[in-house]
Simulated assay, not measured.
Amino acid sequence: MSQLFASQKFRRTALQAGFAIAAVLLIVSIILTGQRNIADQGIATGFGFLERTTGWPINFSVIEVSGRSTYARVLWAGLLNTMLVGFLTLIFATILGLLLALMRVSSNTLMKLVGTTYVEVFRNVPVILQVFFWYAILTHLPSPKQAYSIADSIYLSNRGLMFPAPSFSGNDLLLTALAFVALCIGIWVMRNHHTAMRRWIGAAVVFGVICAVLLVTGREPDMPLISTPELKGLRFVGGISLKPEFSALLIGLVLFGASYIGEIIRGGLLSVDRGKLEAGTALGLSPFQINRLIRIPLAFRAMLPSLTNQYVWLMKGTTVGIAIGYPDYFAIVSTSINQSGQTMELLALLMGGFIVINYSIGFAMNMLNERIKLKGRS
Rank of each mutant, 00 (worst) to 15 (best):
N366C: 00
L253C: 11
P164D: 07
P224T: 11
W313D: 09
L50G: 03
G186F: 09
I265N: 05
P166Y: 13
A282Q: 01
Y359H: 12
A182E: 07
F5W: 12
L15K: 10
K276F: 12
T335Q: 01
G186R: 08
L32P: 01
G362E: 14
T318G: 04
G202V: 05
A182V: 12
V65K: 01
R52Y: 03
M1R: 04
I294V: 15
L80C: 01
L50N: 05
G362Q: 15
I361W: 05
L234W: 06
L25Y: 04
G284P: 02
G186H: 11
P57H: 13
S271D: 09
A14G: 05
W76S: 07
L225N: 00
G34Y: 09
R377Q: 12
T318H: 07
L102I: 07
A147R: 02
V205D: 04
F300L: 15
V24T: 15
F180I: 14
V213G: 01
I201H: 05
G321L: 10
P164T: 06
G46C: 08
S227L: 07
A165W: 01
G267C: 04
I187W: 14
G186M: 10
I265H: 03
E370H: 13
T45Q: 15
E278H: 01
L174K: 01
I226N: 02
W200P: 00
V206M: 05
R292F: 07
F363N: 05
D273F: 13
R219A: 10
F87Y: 13
I38M: 03
G238M: 13
F132Y: 12
G34M: 13
V121A: 07
T139H: 01
L178V: 15
L156I: 12
T176F: 11
P244W: 06
L350A: 04
G275L: 13
K232C: 06
V105N: 05
A136G: 12
L96C: 07
F256T: 09
E278L: 09
W188N: 11
V28S: 10
F288L: 11
Q16N: 02
I187V: 15
S241V: 04
P244T: 07
V209L: 15
R371C: 02
S69K: 08
L173A: 08
L173S: 06
T117F: 11
V181T: 11
G257E: 01
F163W: 09
M197D: 00
L269T: 04
S66Y: 00
N291R: 08
